[in-house]
Design a protein around this nucleic acid. Structure first.
Length: 564
RNA sequence: UGGGGCGUCGCCAAGUCGGUAAGGCACGAGACUUUGGAUCUCGCAUGCGUUGGUUCGAGUCCAGCCGCCCCAGCCA
């Protein structure tokens, strides 16, 4: 396993290196992940989390976790809890630096007052519709608010009255005085504070005005000493405003800030066969297309975790995908590769027969059981386990063909195949029912061919997995596939994105025979079901004592390609 | 006649001062194999959106053009 993934070079490293060379920030590098607690984290967030955390680590710097909780009407404690759990699971460590934007509302209020005194902010009485009208359009400049040039005294008094709850929601806002004619809409006197008579999940009812992201975020970054504030591309247009706020803070409130924070944008993550927007993910949950935020088909951190994906695989994926500014859609196959790559040398092998066909070894003594030792991980020093073998076994139905093509190396009438870790058997007869369906196979085994002690000198190409009928444990298996059938689910060729949902994204099969060793599997254990894929004993269902295994990802199947 | 950003192999992505196109995924061929898995070897862009220009030499510099993405929340 590659536990120390090599960190690829990217444009952000180049920027930081330059800053370091120029002696900025006393050589410090400090990053942060700033989630709004209004939903679940997904793999796109994992990219941001790991990017920030890794950069801090590479440069011997620090990484903060800060909740951007400036909008009480959308945010909840439940999300704070799930986000903390997810980030911790991913392995990003913020040490003792867990912050909430709301913890410093008082200082921010003071900063706003200083902006007013400096003539850089004013209270505007325009209502939301009017503000929109005055803002102009993409191609036409805006008009200045009639309240733009109020005196400092009046502004200060009105702002205090806003804070004291004397005005209703939407009646007034605090705005920055910048440039109503700017080509960048963000600079057309952006709103800094709005009135929101709402209970905040942390500050309760102590505030009824709340800072806007564009005011709060840069200032909080500067307060925390965040040197490099990484965010996604859509914030590029906000950077001039970010700088405006930081520079103002440095000038008007130097004792409150620790550095000239700098915003750097990078492209967000997109993957084939999935959707990433919070809105769409919520719809999947609310419209019951999946069973919840942690459904293993969801790209949420909780979903990936429950699917059985490891944090190491996600980190490897993120590292391979890289960081850039261009829009991109990463092939799901890349994630799957990382998952297999990680589990290859970690997951113990075990045999389970997903679609059983009974085989009777007619020359095996009735009632005789032989214990065979099979390696837990081939080539690794991971020990062996005892696997019982007997007269009746199950094999996969697809491992037998009545009239096989020449390239089929498995069982067929008159053909031989090796049972993994056991003997070579030969198919003598296929027993059918009245309808012509094959109900069982009659085979003979060759005692000379015992695994590891083969004296027959025979070369057998095909090796298949099996489970003793008498000793089989019974498990339930959930076979997951892509949630969407289309590479780009957003495609509206069939209408809504939900029309692209893969109807076979989950197939549950019960009563699956598996070798008895699996009965000892603790919840949360990952296995490789030989020739079938990687599976995870779902901890949520294990609580009820059930043996349910989620397929994390299948094995590569070159036969599937040949047989087409 | 708004502003910002992006365009290097099917998908990602490296490409400091311009010096003659990394790597990964996918794919193909072969070797090996008691998982048609894994592993190993080999192959996979005379070309970097496009057209011109500068230069001994351009993905890297200049100019024009084309295409795609983002922005008009008192959301973040």
């Amino acid at each position: 396993m590659a536990n120390e993934t090599e960190v690829k070079s990217n444009f952000i490293h180049a920027i930081i290196n330059r800053d370091l060379e120029e002696g900025k920030n006393n050589g410090l590098v400090h990053t942060r992940f700033p989630p709004e607690p209004n939903g679940y984290l997904h793999i796109g967030h994992a990219k941001a989390i790991l990017l920030n955390f890794t950069i801090a680590k590479v440069y011997n710097g620090k990484f903060n976790l800060r909740f951007d909780d400036t909008n009480p009407v959308r945010e909840e404690q439940e999300f704070v809890d799930s986000i903390i759990e997810d980030i911790r699971w991913l392995g990003a460590d913020w040490e003792d630096r867990l912050y909430f934007s709301s913890d410093s509302f008082q200082v921010k209020y003071e900063f706003a007052c200083r902006l007013i005194r400096a003539g850089r902010a004013y209270v505007c009485d325009l209502n939301p519709e009017q503000i929109r009208e005055f803002r102009g359009t993409l191609t036409e400049p805006g008009r200045e608010s009639p309240y733009r040039n109020r005196s400092t005294e009046i502004n200060l008094r009105l702002f205090e009255q806003m804070r004291n709850g004397e005005f209703p929601n939407g009646s007034r806002v605090l705005r920055a005085k910048i440039d109503m004619a700017s080509g960048n809409l963000n600079l057309r006197d952006p709103v800094l504070y709005r009135i929101l008579h709402a209970r905040h999940h942390r500050t309760g009812d102590s505030w009824c005005i709340y800072p806007m992201y564009d005011f709060d975020h840069p200032f909080t970054d500067a307060m925390e000493g965040i040197t490099h504030s990484l965010c996604s591309i859509e914030y590029s247009d906000h950077r001039p405003l970010y700088d405006w706020v930081v520079d103002s803070a440095l000038e008007l409130f130097p004792e409150a800030v620790r550095c000239r924070s700098r915003q750097i944008e990078f492209a967000r993550l997109n993957m084939t066969y999935t959707v990433m927007s919070k809105r769409k993910l919520r719809r999947l949950v609310e419209e019951r297309h999946v069973q919840g935020w942690d459904d293993p088909r969801m790209p949420t951190i909780a979903g990936l975790r429950r699917r059985g994906v490891t944090p190491a695989a996600i980190a490897d994926f993120q590292e391979r995908a890289g960081i850039a500014r261009s829009d991109s859609v990463i092939d799901l196959a890349m994630l799957e590769h990382c998952i297999r790559n990680d589990l290859e040398n970690k997951a113990h092998r075990v045999m389970a027969v997903l679609d059983p066909l009974k085989v009777v070894l007619t020359n095996w003594p009735a009632g005789k059981t032989e214990l065979l030792a099979l390696e837990n991980i081939p080539g690794a020093d991971a020990g062996t386990r005892q696997v019982p073998f007997g007269r009746e076994i199950f094999i996969e139905r697809e491992d037998f063909m009545e009239a096989p093509p020449k390239q089929f190396f498995r069982l067929a009438p008159g053909r031989e195949v090796r049972l993994k870790g056991a003997y070579v058997i030969r198919c003598e007869d296929a027993v059918k029912d009245a309808a012509g369906n094959i109900t069982e196979l009659h085979c003979t085994f060759d005692p000379q061919t015992k695994s590891g002690e083969d004296t027959s000198g025979r070369k057998i190409k095909g090796v298949i997995h099996w489970v003793s009928v008498e000793h089989a444990a019974r498990i339930t298996v959930r076979l997951y596939e892509n949630l969407f059938a289309r590479e780009n689910p957003e495609s509206e060729e069939d209408g809504d994105f939900t029309a692209n949902i893969n109807p076979d994204s989950l197939v549950t099969t019960g009563n699956v025979p598996a070798e008895p060793a699996i009965a000892a599997a603790a919840a949360g254990t990952r296995f490789q079901f030989l020739r079938k894929g990687y599976f995870y004993r779902d901890p949520a269902d294990a609580k009820e004592g059930r043996m349910i295994f989620n397929r994390i990802v299948g094995l590569k199947d070159s036969w599937a390609k040949i047989s087409q």
